[in-house]
Design a protein around this nucleic acid. Sequence first.
DNA 1: GAACACAATATTGTATACAATCCATTGCCG
DNA 2: CGGCAATGGATTGTATACAATATTGTGTTC
Lengths: 238, 238
Amino acid sequence: MNKPHSTQPRTLHRLAASDRVAEALSLAIHEHRLSPGTKLGEDEIGEVYGVSRTIVRTALQSLAHIQLVEMHRNRGAFVAQPSQQEAREVFEARELLEPRTAHMAAARATAADIDTLRAHIAEEHAAMAAGDRGRALHLSGLFHIEIARIAGQTTIAGFVDELIARSSLIIALYWRRESALCESHAHHDLIEAIAGRDGPSAEDLMRSHLVDLHSALDLHRSAAPARSLKEALQKPGS
Amino acid sequence: MNKPHSTQPRTLHRLAASDRVAEALSLAIHEHRLSPGTKLGEDEIGEVYGVSRTIVRTALQSLAHIQLVEMHRNRGAFVAQPSQQEAREVFEARELLEPRTAHMAAARATAADIDTLRAHIAEEHAAMAAGDRGRALHLSGLFHIEIARIAGQTTIAGFVDELIARSSLIIALYWRRESALCESHAHHDLIEAIAGRDGPSAEDLMRSHLVDLHSALDLHRSAAPARSLKEALQKPGS
DNA sequence: GAACACAATATTGTATACAATCCATTGCCG
DNA sequence: CGGCAATGGATTGTATACAATATTGTGTTC
């Protein structure tokens, strides 16, 4: 499978092949083109991206580590299906971490950072206007990650990264149709607070934004998606 | 060691070979038998544990993800050497997460949990008395992880797990000899607060304990350990 | 016709072989 | 003698082959 050489000049640190595959899979999950529970066969993925199972396996393990996919021994990899309990924990963790990072971001953001954030929002609006809800959701997540990055806490930013990824799955599973996706407004206010160097406001805005998101999820009904068929098909009463 | 998670599959699977190797390496790092910067050759490790490079590679990738080892493309894996900046970030993250988990743990701990914690302390004392400083350090870390587990936040517990692991490296690199290792006292007080269901006290005790640890590190001197030989041997002035 | 046992198939787990890359030594030339 | 380039060895990156395991299909028995 020798791919023709691209026009790319020799870069000293070419991206590892497994990272490319992991990135592509991650994007597909974030944009809800892959649904929770979907089987991710190694041969199949390898064929798509023109790499061997070795690479695919590495990519899947990487995604499994951030809990975007679940790997079951001798059974394969599946797009993860966070339980309601896990969903609650993810949002509790976000509510603990992100308000603080927003505060720090307000203290450290440069003009260029603000521009980046505004560009994110613009892209998000454009995607939404184009009806590409998956892409809008993905960009919305990137917005949060960008804030953590601006805060200069790469460790916490890594955690936020993982939490955002899982949130995407959670939204795919538990989003209530009734509640509209009106985050753009919250994001806009957040940018203004950060641009205005108003740490406390940024912190409060982030907190309430996350609480809004959390409350727009349906984590109480017993309509939890089943982890296994056996679990799914059993009568609740019996 | 990691206890099996709540979502145990219906079949009791043998531990994967790569997990065994990763666990062994992790333990060696935690107990300071492997120093930061040590090269981890794949063939060498494979020979030690009687497995092929495939397994070793998986284990190393797993450890790289929690930043216990650094992998450099085409150069191999090394025990990670957190910079002073990274060290600060790790402890800032711990100071953000762990006091809260201590609070929650106080609210949820069962009698059995308290016993487990006391057993941890006893083992830690025993190891220290036996002069096994590495093992004592490891057990001290497990104590913190156990508290996060008791708090019932498996997601945050996972983060704490990673932070503890990195802390072990940080202590290996930046611990000031002058300051004595007097944590046992802090851990003891923490247990009492948790046993007494005193959440606020547990939170405060955890916070001050972490601040103590943090301040016992030497994160200001420019004696940062070099990441590479080249960097180490260059004259500072030139 | 239903339930079970067994065989066939497909998929994952692991080992090994080969290719690519880096590092060190060595030899050459200034 | 010092710096630079070519070359050899060692190590990692990737592909493939084989082994182990789960799942599915089929036949037999009651």
